[in-house]
Amino acid sequence: MKGKLIVFEGTDGSGKATQAKLLCRRLEQEGLAYREIDFPRYGKPSAAMVEEYLRGGLGKKAGDVNAYAASVFYAVDRYASYRQDWGDFYEGGGLVVADRYTTSNAVHQASKLPDGEREAYLNWLFDLEYGRMGLPKPDLVVYLDMPTEITERMMRRRESDTGTHADIHEQDTAYLRRCRANAGEVARLCGWTVVHCADGDAPRTVEDIHGEVWQRVREVL
């Protein structure tokens, strides 16, 4: 008996980690068992090429590494995670909450391609991970749509507060804008659940967003 897989997706700084944790807290309150996963798995051998890519070791801009090559880096990490960490739990009927998944390649890597090539890429991506690698398809993808202007402010504040350094995705505002534009189209094509996280120029509160997310999650539990 296969389980349920709920994925949070969005551009960098859109609040995926926050909303994933709020959902997990709600599941605990409801007495529901779950596993929480997130990608990439920094520090794991399977994520080594992802880290090399994001730190700029293969090119200083995201576009220096083509969509297909970068996608394989991430896919390998997901496959290892499934085999090592959560596959048995899922296959036994467990509920899994993911901060990013295959869907992140659809958001970030497809944005590197011209309009006429994106559909072929998506078909290749989903066949690679869900078909040939045997990774489970999500039961629900919650796409957190946050304007790039807001996410950029939030990321710069996070860097200042934590002393961290932005990766090559997070440094490139033009790239982040392309990702958001691409994600809107991918969300429509793939039937993702879109949650709008801002009211004009102001972000909604995390509690308000969580309330909407929980309503959508309850429909698939």
Rank of each mutant, 00 (worst) to 15 (best):
Y42V: 03
G43M: 12
A48P: 03
E52N: 04
Y53D: 08
R55G: 03
L58C: 05
G59V: 08
K60T: 13
G63Y: 05
V65S: 09
A67M: 08
A67I: 10
A67S: 11
A69F: 09
S71R: 07
V72Q: 06
F73S: 02
Y74K: 01
A75S: 13
A75W: 01
A75F: 01
A75C: 01
D77S: 04
D77P: 03
R78C: 00
Y79S: 00
Q84Y: 03
Q84N: 10
D88A: 15
F89A: 10
Y90P: 02
G93L: 06
G93M: 08
D99A: 06
T102R: 02
S104A: 15
N105S: 15
A106C: 04
V107Y: 10
K112M: 09
L113A: 15
P114Q: 07
E119W: 03
E119G: 05
A120D: 15
L122V: 09
L122M: 14
F126H: 07
D127F: 10
E129G: 06
R132G: 01
P138V: 10
D139V: 03
L140P: 14
L140V: 13
V141M: 13
V142T: 06
L144P: 11
T151H: 08
T151Q: 12
R153N: 13
M155V: 14
E159T: 07
S160H: 12
D161C: 01
G163D: 06
A166K: 14
H169S: 00
Q171Y: 00
Q171F: 00
D172T: 08
T173D: 11
A174L: 07
R177G: 00
R177S: 00
